[in-house]
Design a binder for these strands. Structure first.
Lengths: 344, 344
DNA sequence: AATCATTTTCAAAGCGCTTTGGATGTCTGC
DNA sequence: GCAGACATCCAAAGCGCTTTGAAAATGATT
């Protein structure tokens, strides 16, 4: 059933039917009801391609997911982010289109998206420092918002970010207050902006208490369980092992916990751990009492909000740029405790 | 730059340029080269909506993700599946469009997709027993493939599945061979087809050795870490605790391990664990030696293959239905060992 | 040189919608 | 009873592409 069929069926012109369905005022309320009813009954929905062609709007938003052939890693937060954003999209009648692309072809993918007019805007994920996508998107004129920020970019753009720096500074402070002096950092890839900021928060908090950051107990990698495990194990086996760890993700933290327990130590008593918790649906941090003391910020909520910002931007491309900085909450769980005596 | 502009720029008709670009034979090679070059230089790409409208094909494939307001759970395998499928899609020029929808509106979402012509086909995720989506999709005539199978459906359809039953039967056998007699099952939601099949494999293997399945040591839930932890803890605390567990996902297994270690037991010595491993990129099961003994099957690979099957189906809707059953490999890791003497 | 077959190119229609610029009908006030 | 205002509807153009059917150019054959 298409518009033409529906309109002949109703004995009306396509114009009138279209207007009735799209809520234009110049149509009799009686007629509008008739049209709406018939559309409902015949399960009519406008062909989105035709509509898009006519209106010049795709009613779709793009997400390009770069896939490194080496790392072969999918960001585990992606699912939850999508769920959040998707909620906003469907509420506003937008589709979500994903493009998986080899990372070397990422720029080309954006150009492609732009010239093919497949989407009205894109969400930029996982910004790196000096991220080149931002100027590219500005240049080609594709509306976008960034989930996170990119240090070292002069241009302004819309973003929503967790205050990674203050979160990790607070977490570090919390550990220092408990008497920990040697705190290992198990961070994401150094090129990632969030990892950079987290390290900055951590280092500043240490320095503020007169402790020099020690590169020997700072690691930076793709945030897997294995990485958390290995890093913690190595640091614990070294001279002057840390009495506490700061981990950048729950999955890392699970690895850290494994290393601790493998060594016969007890998390929360012998070794403290604080992790960042993205509030992933399949990795809840305990139920009533959190297992890990954590800096918590829901990535799903971020997705929801970011989608709103982008849609606003699409509807009003010359509107003000939006910057939203969310504070992570520090949730005290069972993984932290006073530094053991002998280590103080 | 659109086709019209490009063609006047070249002094050719739109027809010729279109044909040149789409590889039709009736165009001079010399002209084709000229056209290709100009297209390249001016970064021309056909408007996908216009193209879709003209050809009647969306060159896009849909995935609808039902979101329960209660569970609020995103399947953690989703990211990796998407990555795999996305690879196939981009190789074949398809876009991937996701629709997040409240589960109660799922059927309506498919109808919607169908009548709006947004995609050429869909992938059905996480089939339940007697899954109603299959007959719906048949009815509305939207090409589809299923990731998994749906027991209790009379109609035939294309699917790709892991042999869950044989995988869990083998895993159970493996544990039985090691002398374990009481094996706890920590499974996914009972309504899910895969969970059903896994339980069937587990039960049959037990019965074949004259052991009656005991409902007291079988759990079924959304597969979170917490669920794995709680289930294992409860079972270990009960009379006649299991000496081994069979878990349906790595994330569950991490919880199981936590419960074991919390009790002061050692996984692989005191308690054995086998898990199903979907080979998620951020949850590798160890590096050289697997941590968990596991039945392993890459969900990413499944995504890749399933996408191929669907595209084939779209190109040839009357072709034969395809059924692919992948055998999971049993990888022996450090989490299994002979049953402790006193328990035998 | 004329004819026919083949290659190469083109004008125009059509995909299903929105939207512009009327046309028609109805109502008001004088 | 008629001009003007307003409400309601419509025909047709246009969005950017593909594709049909025909025309023009070229080459081969007599």
């Amino acid at each position: 059933m298409n518009l033409k069929e529906l309109s002949t069926l109703l004995g009306l012109s396509q114009t009138t039917v279209s207007r009735a369905l799209n809520g234009y005022p110049e149509v009799n309320e009686e007629t509008r009801r008739r049209v709406a009813l018939a559309a409902e009954q015949h399960n009519y929905r406008p062909n989105s391609r035709a509509k898009g062609l006519a209106t010049g709007r795709a009613m779709a938003i793009g997400h390009v997911i770069p896939m490194s052939t080496k790392h072969e890693m999918v960001n585990p937060i992606f699912g939850d982010f999508i769920a959040g954003a998707g909620e906003t999209y469907s509420r506003n009648g937008y589709d979500m289109v994903l493009t998986v692309v080899e990372d070397v072809n990422e720029a080309q993918a954006y150009r492609n998206i732009r010239s093919r007019h497949t989407v009205d805007g894109v969400v930029v994920h996982g910004p790196k420092m000096q991220d080149s996508r931002i100027s590219l998107l500005k240049e080609i004129g594709l509306p976008f918002v960034v989930h996170g920020r990119a240090s070292g970019i002069a241009q302004d753009y819309s973003w929503l970010d967790v205050n990674n720096k203050s979160a990790f500074a607070r977490a570090t402070d919390f550990l220092l207050d408990l008497g920990h002096q040697r705190i290992g950092l198990i961070n994401g890839l150094e090129g990632m902006d969030f990892a950079h900021r987290r390290r900055a928060g951590y280092e500043e908090a240490l320095i503020a208490r007169g402790i020099a950051p020690d590169p020997a107990i700072m690691r930076s990698e793709e945030m897997t369980e294995i990485f958390g495990y290995r890093s913690a194990r190595e640091m614990l086996a070294a001279d002057e092992p840390p009495t506490a760890f700061l981990a950048s993700s729950m999955i890392c933290a699970l690895g850290v916990r494994r290393a601790i327990e493998e060594r016969g130590l007890r998390m929360g008593r012998d070794i403290s751990v604080i992790t960042h918790d993205d509030a992933l649906s399949y990795l809840q941090n305990g139920s009533d009492v959190p297992i890990f003391t954590a800096t918590r910020s829901s990535v799903r909520e971020a997705g929801r909000r970011l989608a709103e910002i982008l849609i606003e931007r699409i509807n009003n491309p010359d509107g003000p740029l939006i910057h939203e900085l969310l504070e992570a909450e520090l949730m005290v769980g069972q993984s932290t405790g006073p530094a053991p005596r002998e280590a103080q």
